[in-house]
Amino acid sequence: MSNLGLFFAILGAALAVGLAGIGSAKGVGLTGEAAAGLLSEKTDMFGKVLTLQILPGTQGLYGFIVALVLLNKIGVFSGNVVELTLQQGLSLFAACLPIAITGFFSAIYQGRVAAAGISLIAKQPTMLGKSMTLASIVELYAILTLLVSFLAVFNISVG
C-alpha cells in the first residue's frame, strides 16, 4: 500500500508539470506563430511581441513549482523517500490537480488572447499595454490554482 501512495504522489507531480507544460507549450506556440506573422511584415515589433509571447508560458512554471515542492516534501531530492499511505498519496495527487487542469486550459486560452493581441498591436502598436492586460486576466485563474495547489501540497502532512 505504501508504494501505491508514493505512486499517486509522483503521478500528481508529473501531471502538474506535464499538463501545465503542454498547455503552456501550446499557448506559447500559438502566440509565437502570430508573432512571426507580424514580424514578417513589421520587423521592428520584436520587443513588443516577445512580451506577449511570454505570458502563456507561466502556467508551465507554476506546474513546475508545485511539482518541485511535492518532490522535495516526499524526499526525492534528499534520497530519503518517505513512506506514504494511500490516503496521503491520493491527497498529494488531488492537491496537484488544480494547477494541472487549470494550467493546461488557461495557458491555451491565454495563448489565443495573446495571439489576438498581436493582431491588435499589428494595427495599433500603442495597444501593447491593453493587449497584455487582456491576456493577464486569464492568468489570474492560473495564479489562483497555483496558490491552492501550493498550499495544499505544503500543508499535507507526510511521514
Binding site: 506573422g37 507580424l38 495571439a115
Partner: peptide, 17 residues
C-alpha cells in the same frame, strides 16, 4: 482556425497600408 495565426497577424499588419 488557430492554424491561421501567422497569416492573420501578417494580414492585420498589411491592413494598415
Amino acid at each position: 482556425d488557430t492554424d491561421y495565426a501567422f497569416c492573420v497577424a501578417a494580414i492585420r499588419a498589411r491592413e494598415t497600408d
